[in-house]
Design a binder for these strands. Structure first.
Length: 507
RNA sequence: GGUCGGGUGGCCGAGUGGCUAGGCAGUGGUCUGCAAAACCUCGUACAGCGGUUCGAAUCCGCUUCCGACCUCCA
């Protein structure tokens, strides 16, 4: 049905044919959030992007083990040598909470947001604090292999040694001589042999809240270490896909590769996938206030839904936002603007309405396949082929939009069913459902409620109102007919008068 | 300063050597009591300058602007 899967590999900087290590099964690791504050909207884009990738791999029939971690320790602000603080410890002090309360609070918020965006849960969601033993073991094996050294209770990765063996900087395109020249003067550099060396175990300062015993000191693991340790534990020394945001390429992912090489002389992932940034009004989101406008160029996911933010004119539903994200490729920057969201909202509704019409079509007449039949089948084939070409959701989506006029044309009678095989209509129905719900992970929030028969109740009411209005129209009582229509419009319920009667939909 | 990625029609956004992206907005029409929706129709864009080529938005060079990373950051 679909062509060979191709992915753009950041490691080789080219599109490659995807071959899993074990046929039919895929191991995928995606760097999850550091749970020290509310989840960033840009973060949501990354996880939505990988959700679509995950869903498509499942659609292709792969058995996928999707591991996405929760960083709940070790992510420092500032440099480790200059008395930097762990983000979670810092927040805990600020909010006068236990570090684990901070973690739980923001992890809950993160999970809620992922559910709102309708992302599938990962197969395993390991936490750094739950894998201290594995991390200590990894530090030890890196030391044993001569790729790390201990100094005053902290352990540093020896990037110079790795660079001599020719691999440090491969992913990010950096070379160590440049790092040496460019790294700005760091204070208290004495513990490190080289500025580009990084801590894999950090001796805890007395006031540091989170710490564990280790052969080197009472301390805590370096941030990059958790991903190496946990990906190895759950996916093995060598697995298929490693993903994350673009900004994690250096130093985080580069250092992950270094650690895996140092501990087992192996390359963790065969394919590295990176998502690009979400901009707002053409710029990076920033909480600082613009002195001219008095507003900040940032928005929280919650504000996006309620419209409670000066950068947007109204609220947009989570599915509209998800649809908006699908319209661009995961590896491109995406510019969030009010106009773009508003356009996405209309397009999303058009797609959903189109699908509703499609699912209600019942083919009539002959079933001799004609040009239209071929056209429809070609578009379906194209959509899947494009999705297999580095998960090109925007292209596949465009194909669906090319099919929508055909669907509406069939319903309205502009296009004839005798041009299309009955099996093609069935294939079209399946394709739309597969793409919209299974692969793109959208939900139809254009209908009321969802559960508890709420829709049925509303539909019953609407049918009654439509009947009353129909009587008024037959009596040419346009005033009453228009009043009903306008009143419903104000309630975001739209009436559509067609040849076969009147239909309604929720805006 | 270094590394990397970009600048596509009014807006968002695909596209990498010749073939309609798509959505929104806009144009003209069909339908309709009117409207909305839907359908049909139109729009000929690729930062600038030079080069390669029969042919470039797509390749190369220069200029310019923007973004990411190099320090925590999706």
């Amino acid at each position: 049905m679909s062509a060979q899967l191709k992915v753009y590999n950041s490691l080789t900087r080219q599109k490659e044919i995807f071959k899993p290590i074990n046929e039919g099964a895929i191991g995928m690791y995606v760097c999850g959030p550091t749970v020290y504050s509310d989840v960033h909207l840009g973060n949501c884009r990354t996880f939505v992007s990988f959700d679509v990738i995950y869903r498509y791999l499942l659609h292709l029939g792969y058995k996928v083990r999707y591991v996405r971690n929760i960083t709940d320790v070790g992510h420092l602000e500032g440099d480790a040598d200059t008395g930097a603080e762990d983000k979670i410890s810092k927040k805990a002090k600020l909010e006068q909470l236990e570090p684990m309360e901070v973690v739980q609070k923001y992890m809950n918020g993160f999970h809620d947001m992922m559910a709102v965006f309708n992302t599938l849960k990962p197969s395993i969601e390991p936490r750094a604090t739950g894998h201290i033993v594995e991390q200590i073991e990894m530090v030890q094996s890196i030391i044993d292999n001569g790729f790390a050294y201990e100094k005053n209770g902290s352990v540093y990765f020896d990037t110079v040694k790795l660079a001599k063996e020719g691999d440090y900087g491969k992913l990010s395109g950096r070379v160590i001589e440049e790092l040496l020249v460019e790294t700005r003067d760091l204070k208290n550099q004495d513990e490190k042999r080289h500025p580009s060396d990084f801590a894999i175990w950090i001796k805890a300062a007395p006031e540091h809240l989170m710490h564990w015993n280790s052969p080197w000191s009472v301390g805590f693991p370096g941030w990059h270490l958790e991903c190496s340790a946990m990906s190895t534990k759950y996916l093995g020394n060598n697995f298929d896909i490693h993903g994350g945001g673009n900004d994690l390429k250096f130093p985080h992912h580069e250092n992950e590769i270094a650690q895996n090489y140092g501990s087992c002389n192996c390359q963790p992932a065969n394919y590295w996938l990176h998502t690009n940034m979400l901009l707002m009004n053409g710029k990076k989101m920033s909480k600082s206030i613009d002195p001219e406008t008095g507003i900040s160029n940032s928005i929280a996911p919650g504000e996006l839904f309620t419209g409670d933010n000066p950068n947007i004119s109204k609220g947009y539903s989570p599915m509209v936002v998800r649809f908006f994200m699908l319209q661009s490729h995961y590896s491109s920057t995406l510019d969030l603007t009010d106009a773009a969201l508003s356009a996405a909202e209309k397009a999303y509704r058009r797609l959903m309405e189109g699908n509703k019409v499609l699912q209600e079509l019942s083919p009539t007449g002959k079933e001799s396949a004609g040009d239209l039949d071929k056209e429809i089948n070609d578009l379906i084939d194209l959509a899947f082929a494009e999705m297999s070409d580095d998960f090109n959701a925007p292209k596949a989506l465009a194909r669906l939009f090319e099919l929508v006029p055909k669907i509406n044309g069939l319903k309205a009678g502009h296009l004839a069913f005798d041009q299309i095989a009955v099996s093609t209509i069935e294939r079209l129905k399946t394709t739309f459902n597969t793409f919209i719900f299974d692969i793109f992970g959208l939900k139809d929030d254009t209908i009321a409620g969802g559960g508890d028969g709420e829709y049925e109740t509303l539909d019953g009411l609407m049918q009654m109102v439509i009947k009353i209005r129909q009587n008024a129209r037959q009596n040419k009582d346009w005033g009453t007919a228009d009043t009903i229509r306008d009143t419903l419009k104000a309630l975001k319920l739209q009436l559509k008068d067609g040849k076969e009667g009147t239909e309604w939909s929720k805006e």
